[in-house]
Amino acid sequence: MLKIFVLIKQVPYLHNLEIDRRTGTLIREGVENIINPDDLYALELGLSLKEQYDGEITAMTMGPPQADFALRECLAMGVDHAILISDPIFAYSDTLQTTLVLKEAFDNIKDYDIIITGSQTSDSSTGQMPYQLSEALDIPLITDIFTMEIKDHDFYCHRNFGHESQHIQTGLPILVRTQRHFNEPRHISLKGIKRAFEKEIEMYNFDTFNCPDYLDGCNQSPTRLVKTEKIILKRKNEVIDGTTKDKIERLIHIMQEHGIERIWTGMSQDE
């Protein structure tokens, strides 16, 4: 049976984001959390592979205990199992530390065929994790696919790579990164919601894996955030008043100031 894993992240919903002026960090209280939007495409691909190849799909995330809500949503969408990797010592992990923890988790799971990720998280937006996990697990990362097939434990697909379209074959296990708008993520059904609360979420922490000491998000992450600033965009904000005619005259004047003139195309108008 095809063992499918989808990696998701719970992120803050980016509406009215505010920064605490004293500490320079984001105010997270009262901010709604959602599944990272790009991860929904990964989930949809995982669910459709499960249906096509009679597989078993697990959603996995690393985060604080409340990330369990994001996993419940995945269960409601139809995933079979959910794993939450959560430990205070993993807090503040950067990409490298997160990758090292995920490597421990997969080394512990052992039996996996396809790991699927989204393209980027909306909070830290590094986009590095799929590449680093590919290094860590020493399995190929396939990106930008447009058709795929699994036969006899081999993975075949067409993908865009640089300026080429390639037909490739590789053995499992593999990592697949989905691109945005790759598919149409499904909605949650009422039956799904009921099931989501009947299932158990498996918990992994530092002790589950016999973790090496270098897994310490706060002290061992190589990158450190030293300051957060809200981006304030300075613009003139001049309101152009008057009649429609006045507005258009002023607009044409502004366009002229920017070197925009009517050009003679040498072609007649398409009418």
Binding site: L14, L17, S122, P222, V226, T228, I231
Partner: peptide, 26 residues
């Protein structure tokens, strides 16, 4: 934050904020 350390500015949260990040010990 350390001798001649590189400070990188990068956008985060869909470009809503700018963060300054260092890599002090590796």
């Amino acid at each position: 934050y350390g001798n001649n350390l590189l400070i990188s500015d990068k956008p985060a949260y869909l470009g809503n904020v700018l963060v300054k990040i260092i890599c002090p010990s590796t």
